[in-house]
Design a protein around this nucleic acid. Structure first.
Length: 379
DNA sequence: ACTTGAGTAAACACTG
DNA sequence: CCAGTGTTTACTCAAG
């Protein structure tokens, strides 16, 4: 996404415009040219309640990420200090990690287009893994969408899908409306749900809502998949339950999650070698690297915002202090963006306001859709 | 053939 | 008592 947004030379550039698409969170309106975009911007995103609410949420996102970033930076410096590495670029250029990587790359290759990544193993430069790690992803991302995918949920799905929302994003409408089982494990989905939340924590009920909101498939057989969700929350150490004023919320211990994932990938020696970088940060690079594919903005307001930083920032520090057994995982940024309406059997949380901004609430339509749709006989 | 990870079902405890 | 939540066990299945 770094480079693409700069490529816009259709007369003007705007942070909210790229690839002929409006990048306002939750909006993906196609604007053929810049003028059309401006018109769209003024019409659709004028100063009203909705826009200001979205703006506020975005502020939260940024705030959260800044906190994360500073933590990660500290950690990086501590790591480098520990390893007696000379920080080549520590403070001079306060860039996000993935930017740094691209910088180092362009350093290697002065002007020409990057032919093939001659990375040095030491630098966390361009992802080594993506290629190796995503062999299947494109098929999902790419046009030929998945219908048969539901059946193959078992193994590879999770392994290869390094970044969930990067994968959901382009297929958002598809999964939202088609009664197709998303090719991700429950653990992956739960994590994504939590990551997508403003403060990285969700109540069980909110997790349920995310499932039903995001996937048509999870609008039926509720007892089954809800049980599975609870089962996964309890089973996996990476999900940490935290007592809260609101009650109990669930958070992700990213360390645990990555640990678990890394164990799974252990099968591939070439990958294992790169684990530290490829899993933690590589994921991020991975997620953000294929620009053409999914710079599209996400279903919920900040999916993508989170996602793109997900790997690099969010990944590591949901529990900055990683106390093993019980981590006080999420430091709350004080402000709650999402006041869940306590009962939401259907989706009517503030976020969904955004969600439905460009996609009218069609749950009922979905119902019809799912009834007659794709017979799935997984069970 | 065996192991492992994931999904499903279900029993049970706890709590408001 | 009930519903929701959380934990745990057992089983099946697919893939490595």
């Amino acid at each position: 996404w770094i480079s693409d947004s700069l490529h816009e030379e259709t007369g003007g550039t705007h942070p909210l415009y790229g690839h002929g698409v409006c990048k306002w969170p939750g909006c993906e309106s196609i604007c053929d040219d810049f003028g059309q975009f401006l018109k769209h911007l003024n019409n659709e995103h004028a100063l009203d309640d909705r826009s200001t609410a979205q703006c506020r949420v975005q502020m939260q996102v940024v705030q959260q990420l800044e906190i994360q970033l500073s933590k990660e930076r500290e950690r990086l410096q501590a790591m480098m200090a520990h390893l007696h590495m000379r920080p080549s670029e520590p403070k001079s250029s306060p860039k996000p990690l993935n930017l740094v990587s691209s910088v180092t790359m362009s350093k290697n290759l002065p002007s020409t287009s990057p032919p093939n990544l001659p990375q040095t193993p030491t630098t966390p430069t361009a992802p080594i893994t993506p290629m190796a790690a995503m062999p299947q992803v494109p098929s999902v991302l790419g046009g030929a969408n998945v219908p048969s995918m539901g059946a193959m949920r078992r193994r590879h799905s999770d392994k290869y899908s390094m970044s969930l929302s990067s994968e959901i994003a382009p297929n958002y409408e598809f999964y939202k409306n088609a009664d197709v089982r998303p090719p991700f494990t429950y653990a992956t989905l739960i994590r994504q749900a939590i990551m997508d939340s403003a403060d990285m924590q969700l109540t069980l009920n909110e997790i349920y809502s995310w499932f039903t909101r995001t996937f048509a498939y999870f609008r039926r057989n509720a007892a089954t998949w809800k049980n599975a969700v609870r089962h996964n929350l309890s089973l996996h150490k990476c999900f940490v339950r935290v007592e809260n004023v609101k009650g109990a919320v669930w958070t992700v211990d990213e360390m645990e999650y990555q640990k678990r994932r890394s164990q799974k990938i252990t099968g591939s020696p070439s990958l294992v070698k790169n684990l530290p970088s490829s899993l933690g940060y590589g994921t991020a690079l991975n997620a953000s690297s294929p620009p053409g594919t999914m710079s599209g903005s996400p279903p919920t307001l900040m999916h993508m915002t989170h996602d793109e930083l997900n790997g690099s920032l969010d990944h590591l520090d949901t529990n900055g202090h990683s106390s093993p057994g019980y981590s006080p995982p999420v430091h709350m940024p004080s402000v709650h963006v999402k006041e869940e309406p306590l009962n939401m059997d259907d989706d009517d949380c503030p976020m969904s306001l955004v969600t439905t901004a460009n996609h009218s609430p069609e749950l009922d339509d979905d119902r019809e859709l799912e009834e007659g749709n794709l017979s799935e006989d997984l069970e």
